[in-house]
């Protein structure tokens, strides 16, 4: 599928071709000065974003709101269902029908997988998935791709090492599939119990890539262009001692970066707990705060494109 995104739902990154993603990233690039407040825009003046957050998510919610505001639009909605009609047991379908009538575009974060697809069925206005439980989170994938593109001048040929919980982290699944589609060289670093599921490795191999599977960060850090760090959740380990051991083995600190390339960049979707120690923040490698900022221009691009403000 290619061409205009006007009126389309943004539910899963799998719905998009490489061309479409490249186009979104290009539009996002043009949004940066407005996102930073250096230039003004009224591209979406008079437009209303219905922002429905059934789960707290400070970063995603604020960056959508910032994106809409920077483009001259307004946001209405809730950041937790408490006190709203949702708390009284209203179905998602009914809430969506109502908000559909009040707004021009809907952003949804919901704890149930598939919620955004369902919302898309009931809404006439475009729905953007801001995370559905353990499901998809396409705007995160797009901002991750945007960050690599911007920092590295492109995605193809870069060696991206992804470390952490690769089994349950579904955003890591979409990201690695997208990176595979763009021709990045991939290495997955995780303890065997949290490695990338076979179906995703197979999917990436079907695109002609050969991801490397490893359990040791030390072995691969030297050759990395991008180190993408994700959280290892305590809940995944029945034994707290085992968690401590695993989490410790994958902590990024300046010692482990000793052999890293000068231009290695480190990314993290945030919030971090202790996967990256704070002494890394000062190094030339840290890019996770820029990455978080990049959420704004990327979401500006999506909002303008689905609303038809930009082709």
């Amino acid at each position: 599928m290619s061409g205009s995104l006007k009126g389309l739902d943004i539910v899963s990154i799998r719905d998009f071709s490489r061309d479409q993603i490249e186009h979104i990233l290009k539009v996002a690039e043009g949004m940066v000065p407005v996102a930073k407040g250096e230039e003004k825009s009224n591209l979406l003046e008079g437009r209303v974003l219905g922002s429905l957050f059934y789960e707290p998510s400070t970063r995603t919610r604020l960056s959508f709101e910032a994106a809409m505001t920077r483009l001259g639009g307004r946001t209405l909605g809730f950041d937790e269902p408490k006190g709203s009609s949702v708390a009284k047991g209203e179905t998602l379908a009914d809430t969506i029908r109502m908000v559909d009538a009040y707004s021009d575009v809907i952003v949804l974060r919901h704890p149930q997988e598939g919620a955004a697809r369902l919302a898309g069925h009931f809404a006439e206005k475009p729905v953007i998935n801001a995370g559905d439980g353990a499901g998809q989170h396409p705007t995160q994938t797009l901002l991750d791709l945007f960050t690599i593109m911007k920092e590295k001048g492109g995605i193809e040929g870069n060696h991206v090492v992804i470390v952490g919980d690769l089994k349950y982290g579904r955003t890591v699944h979409s990201l690695s599939e997208a990176l595979g589609m763009f021709g990045a060289k991939l290495t997955f670093v995780a303890p065997p119990t949290l490695q990338m599921p076979k179906e995703h490795v197979k999917h990436i191999e079907s695109m002609g890539m050969r991801p490397t599977i490893s359990s040791s960060l030390d072995d691969v850090i030297e050759e990395a262009d991008v180190l993408y760090v994700t959280r290892i959740q305590k809940e995944r380990f029945p034994d707290p001692a085992e968690y401590q051991k695993v989490a410790g083995a994958y902590t990024i600190n300046s010692a482990i970066l000793r052999d890293a390339a000068d231009d290695l960049i480190i990314m993290h979707p945030l919030p971090r707990v202790n996967e990256i120690s704070s002494d890394v923040d000062q190094t030339k490698h840290a890019r996770y705060f820029e990455q978080a900022f990049n959420g704004v221009p990327v979401r500006m691009a999506l909002l303008s494109m689905v609303l038809g403000g930009i082709e």
Binding site: L92, A93, Q112, E113, G114, R117, L118, H121
Partner: peptide, 12 residues
Amino acid sequence: NPGCITNKNEPV
């Protein structure tokens, strides 16, 4: 999938 929205009383 118990976490799927279709298992949650939605009209689909």
